[in-house]
Amino acid sequence: MSNLEDRPDEVTCVAEPAGGVEVMVPRDVPLGGPRAMRVRRTLPQRERSLIGAWCFVDHYGPDAVADSGGMSVAPHPHTGLQTVSWLFTGEIEHRDSAGHHAMVRPGEVNLMTAGRGISHSEVSTPSSETLHGAQLWVALPDADRDTAPTFAHHAPDPVGGDGWEARVFLGSLLGSTSPVATFTPLLGAELLLEPGAVLELEVDPSFEHGVLVDTGALSVAGVETGQHDLAYVPPGSERLELRAGDDSVRLLLLGGPPFGESIVMWWNFVGRSHEDVAAYRAEWQAQLSRDGEVVGDAQEMADGRFGIVPDDHLPPIPAPALPNARLKQRR
């Protein structure tokens, strides 16, 4: 998914000291245009930029496609990150410049590694009447951020117990391990809890965790967390208690060790400096602009860092203007 804000914020992400459980509420962001579908963005925030290597969390739906127009995100670039797509309802078609063509379906994870540069598009299919899911980004460590673009797909088998069910799409939890490779240790899982259920998870004490509540409300390590909120749990505990309220709960559990590196994230790019981001932007624009016209089939684009998305008929998205101030990295 692209960040389609006209004036995207500079995000300087730094390692932050651990404290107690924090509950973060989302902000509403349109994905471009007056009828565009809207997403609830819970990460990054001013108070917290990363949870492990997770650096971006958009949560959307359930939205009737007839009202929202669905998802129609034209080709756009990424660098220095992985995108993780997870759906609850609907279907989205993915195409990228590395030649991958895949469907995003409920209960199946699609992970795209942008690495040194990739472009991709995401469009909901005509059969999708309702869209509901999450789009997540993972920052790549400095040693791996120029890796070649790749793509992975996995449909995890559910595991369950008394009052709960889980699908582990990244990392390991509840005896289930995902085969999908990541560049830092990560955890990603969907959990379903019946009303009143209590689930005590054994977790890695070196991980910090984020609990994104999709439906219902629950207590996370003793802290009440409402629907659509993201609860942050610092490292240090080997157990994490999730306690559902009077209604059933669906949530995403994210985790990883503190990232330990500062990143500059602007628009769809993750870099380490103003110069990184400015160079990525310039390369993308050079592949698109000819006398002010945006084109998608120029040979220069095919040969560039980001490439073209085969068989995609939507015009690529131009990058917004850089802010007047220099993008700063703070440590």
Rank of each mutant, 00 (worst) to 15 (best):
A155C: 13
S121R: 10
H76L: 07
P257K: 03
A286V: 05
K328Q: 15
P149Q: 02
P195C: 03
S85P: 14
V84T: 14
Q329D: 07
R41A: 00
R7T: 11
A143W: 09
T215M: 07
V295K: 07
H94D: 09
I92G: 05
M71G: 09
P205N: 09
S128F: 06
R40G: 09
R272A: 09
D58K: 03
R105L: 13
Q227D: 02
F207P: 00
P77M: 11
S172W: 01
G107R: 03
A53G: 12
R145V: 01
A74W: 02
G52E: 00
P258I: 04
D214M: 13
V84P: 01
R27P: 05
P141M: 04
E283A: 14
P141A: 07
S85G: 15
A181L: 10
E300K: 15
G61K: 03
S273R: 09
A244T: 04
T147S: 10
L111G: 02
D6T: 13
M71I: 15
V168D: 13
A302W: 05
E194G: 07
A36F: 00
G90K: 10
H313G: 06
F56L: 07
E122D: 06
V270K: 03
H101Y: 11
G107A: 05
P106W: 01
M71W: 12
L43R: 07
A244M: 07
A325S: 14
E190G: 00
F183R: 14
S248W: 13
L199Q: 00
E293T: 14
A286L: 00
E261P: 05
H228W: 10
R95Q: 11
V73K: 05
R48D: 10
L230V: 12
V294Q: 11
P62M: 04
H94M: 08
H76N: 08
D229V: 03
V123D: 08
S172G: 07
T125E: 04
E22V: 14
A321G: 12
M71N: 10
V249H: 11
P310N: 07
P258Q: 08
D6G: 08
G107N: 12
G171W: 12
A18E: 09
S124W: 02
V198F: 07
L251D: 04
A302D: 11
S127W: 13
V264Q: 00
H154A: 07
R105Q: 04
A244D: 14
L193N: 03
G20F: 02
A66D: 14
A66T: 15
H76C: 02
R272V: 10
